[in-house]
Write a protein that binds this DNA or RNA. Structure first.
Length: 485
DNA sequence: TGGCATT
């Protein structure tokens, strides 16, 4: 059932009124009721929260009618899915009824199946709630409404304070605080934002104005896109060109493999870009090595010309496009510029200084691959348009989450992702930033969708030299474990 | 050695 429109509500109201007038109690006809008399001019629109989703307007009506005649009652539905949002707007004809209902019900009664008591309070639209309501983040999950109140009380009169909780009642580590004025709210932001780090919180306190409805919708949509999935080359390249690219690669792979291994690939194997990665993940020395197939990142061009650096990159070894372990047992790294064509061998200490600039500019830095299987095929592949998408931070399954230390200062989430894309499907990549300085803390996390990609990445990238530093790549420490490394 | 969240 769609939401009640105001006119529908009025019609219903009128019918109810007529019915009551027709009752035996009423004596004789009365003059028609004026529309204006339907609702007090100072009526209050109430927000009703914590409603079970199986209750519709007709089910809720009896509960609220005991405080007075209802002018309008609308259960909120999702605009697109029509899903019951677990809350409603309620307007009584009389202001007094609203006050009575709020007093009697707000936080006083819990409807069946709900973990928290019902909310009955003036809707935000009633009091321009937007410009005096704050979002508070990075709270300790043990902090209650009371704790938050204590924190914000010095800055003004607080109308409302709610800690956000999940279905289990556990705090999400954030809250809403509504002051009686914009000025007070502003003062609280100024004094508290970033001012302290709560015990157990990963970063300093966040205090900002709460999202408007519009911003919230936008955020929701962004999250949905983020949920859409893992980052794979096949998702980030246009289908058509990539398909051609993949085919060309397959031919190349097949040729290479059949040269010395004959029937290593059984005929009839259905290829997909994912398969190529797995096929590529065969090493020269028995250790799972880096994939041969390039996994192009979000903004990176396809692989360009071969890095013809003798001793570092061997095009063909034992029939494979070669990955040559450098003295530490790690593969060669090749960096490719967008303009093409200036590959640096990363392992040469003397190149450390020259490698660095490759990472320092967003425009300049485009891709790096710990593999040397380079084909010229890709020259004709058009670049995908840059996709700017804030990724969501999601934890992968056990054994799929890597901790990476000694990242170059310039590395952001996307550079980190590009570096690890060749090893599998990445669920999330995150470089940890210092909130105060907005500088990278030079460590980060990469989550794959399976443990073997994570292991492959560790084998290939742990100890990998970039500039003067060597990457430390390990499984992320489990939350509860006490320093096993 | 994250999970940064919006009734």
């Amino acid at each position: 059932m769609a939401r009640l429109t105001e006119s529908e509500a009025r019609r219903q109201q009128q019918q109810q009124l007529l019915q009551s007038r027709a009752s035996p109690m009423s004596s004789g006809p009365e003059p028609p009721v004026q529309q204006d008399s339907m609702k007090d001019l100072d009526a209050i629109k109430l927000f009703v929260g914590q409603i079970p989703r199986n209750l519709e307007e007709k089910d809720l009506k009896p509960l609220f009618e005991q405080f007075g005649k209802i002018y309008e009652l609308t259960v909120l539905k999702d605009r697109y899915t029509g899903m019951h949002k677990g809350c409603a707007f309620l307007t009584y004809c009389a202001r007094d009824s609203a006050i009575k209902a709020q007093t009697a019900l707000h936080e006083q009664k819990t409807l069946p199946g709900m973990a928290r008591p019902i909310q009955v309070k003036p809707a935000d639209s009633e009091s321009r709630g937007g410009d005096r309501k704050l979002f508070v983040g990075m709270l300790n999950k043990q902090q209650s409404e009371e704790d938050v109140l204590r924190l914000f009380q010095p800055f003004g009169v607080i109308d409302e304070c709610t800690v956000l909780r999940g279905p289990d009642g556990n705090s999400k580590g954030c809250a809403f605080v509504k002051f009686s004025s914009h000025t007070e709210a502003q003062a609280a932001i100024h004094a508290l934002h970033g001012s302290q780090t709560m015990p157990g919180a990963s970063s300093s306190l966040v205090v900002k104005f709460a999202d408007t409805d519009k911003e919230r919708t936008l955020r929701r949509m962004q999250q949905m896109v983020g949920q859409l999935g893992i980052f794979t080359p096949s998702l980030t390249l246009p289908f058509g060109p990539y398909s051609a690219y993949a085919q060309a690669l397959m031919q190349q792979q097949t040729t290479v493999l059949s040269t010395s291994h004959g029937s290593y690939l059984s005929p009839g194997v259905a290829f997909s870009p994912c398969h190529i990665q797995q096929i590529g993940a065969v090493s020269l020395n028995g250790i799972p090595a880096t994939p041969i197939a390039p996994a192009s990142g979000l903004h990176s061009p396809p692989l360009l010309g071969t890095a013809a650096v003798p001793g570092l990159v061997t095009p063909i070894t034992n029939g494979f496009a070669g990955v040559v372990p450098f003295p530490g047992g790690h593969p060669a790294l090749e960096t490719v510029y967008a303009n093409g064509l200036v590959p640096y061998p990363a392992q040469s200490p003397s190149m450390a200084e020259t490698l660095h600039p490759a990472f320092s500019g967003v425009q300049q830095y485009t891709a790096m691959y710990p593999t040397a299987a380079i084909t010229p095929i890709a020259h004709s592949v058009p670049q995908p348009p840059p996709i700017i998408q804030q990724q969501q931070q999601r934890e992968g399954p056990e054994g799929c989450n890597l901790f990476i230390y000694h990242l170059p200062q310039e590395f952001g989430d996307s550079e980190l992702m590009q570096m690890f894309l060749p090893f599998g499907n990445i669920i999330s990549s995150k470089v940890f930033m210092d909130r105060a300085t907005n500088q990278s803390k030079c460590f980060g996390f990469v989550s794959f969708d399976n443990p073997s990609s994570a292991q492959t990445a560790i084998q290939a990238m742990n100890g990998f030299q970039i500039g003067m530093k060597r990457l430390k790549v390990q499984l992320k420490r489990p939350k509860d474990a006490s320093h096993p490394y």
